[in-house]
């Protein structure tokens, strides 16, 4: 088994399938929707409507891009508030039309910039969490690469959270953690181990429900397998009359502590 920091490097590898690769390979009839209706369109989050098999779904994906040019255009997958607001708009629309929402999460974190702060990065993430917690349609989130803190969680308050085998999910980057705690970003590998950020860790903490094997990653067999898993899972969730209260309970039971004597 590889070390946690090796997983971090794998999760960041720019040859890994990105959000758009999943959209292109898992769905048909994808129509992209742009803009948050307040300020602008954020290329770091791609959203739209597509079909999974026969059924319409709303798809939201963080997109890092593969080439240097694409990666720059996509801001390396670090969303601005308008990205989260676009996502929220499309989620609410999915609710209106009774479509499930499927999210692909891949970001080092919400963008740390002046404009992002001026336009309320924290507020945008908070609003997504608030609305996702009672969205009346099934939500499945798949962490396909990096699940970077609140910026990732804003699309991962879901009925099911799945992680790719080499994806990571963390409250802070290992470099950030090492630099704050030990004033030494070179200790990132150590921090990565302490943070318990691998898919296996997330599953044992009850935060991820399923780990998706990376066998044949990016090949048709790989996408075919995920398409089948998604279809089966959506069917189960759509039949569940207590969907929203179960979503509440899913997060409610995590990290509770206890009353001491």
């Amino acid at each position: 088994m590889s070390m946690p920091y090796d997983r971090v490097k794998l999760a960041r590898d720019n040859k890994r399938p990105t959000g758009l690769d999943y959209i292109r390979n898992l769905f048909t009839d994808f129509v992209e929707m742009h803009g948050d209706r307040y300020y602008g369109d954020d290329p770091a989050i791609v959203g739209g409507i597509a079909r999974l098999g026969e059924n319409p779904v709303t798809v939201l994906a963080m997109e890092k891009g593969h080439t240097a040019k694409e990666r720059t255009r996509r801001n390396f997958g670090a969303p601005h508030p308008e990205g989260y607001r676009k996502a929220l708009r499309l989620m609410k629309q999915a609710e209106k039309f009774g479509r499930p929402v499927i999210c692909f999460v891949d970001t080092s974190g919400a963008y740390c910039g002046v404009g992002a702060e001026e336009r309320g990065q924290g507020c945008a993430i908070a609003q997504n969490l608030l609305e996702l917690s009672t969205l009346c349609v099934p939500v499945i989130s798949i962490i396909i690469g990096e699940g970077g803190s609140g910026g990732a969680l804003a699309l991962a308050l879901a009925d099911r959270v799945w992680m790719l085998q080499n994806a990571v999910y963390s409250v802070i980057s290992p470099e950030g953690c090492a630099s704050i705690l030990w004033k030494d970003s070179a200790k990132a590998a150590e921090a990565a181990s302490s943070l318990k950020l691998t898919a296996e860790d997330a599953k044992s903490l009850g935060i991820a429900d399923k780990i998706l094997s990376e066998k044949e990653l990016g090949k048709q067999e790989f996408y075919c397998r995920i398409r089948m898993l998604l279809a089966r899972q959506l069917q189960e969730l759509e039949e569940d009359a207590e969907l929203v209260s179960k979503r509440y309970d899913r997060f409610r039971k995590l990290g509770t502590g206890e009353e001491s004597q």
Binding site: S133, S149, G150, S170, V171, S194, L195, L254, G255
Partner: peptide, 16 residues
């Protein structure tokens, strides 16, 4: 950060 993902998930829990 010392509670890792369990801290992160409190954002979802409190929001609910």
């Amino acid at each position: 950060m010392q509670e890792g993902l369990l801290s992160l998930i409190q954002m979802a829990k409190t929001s609910g």
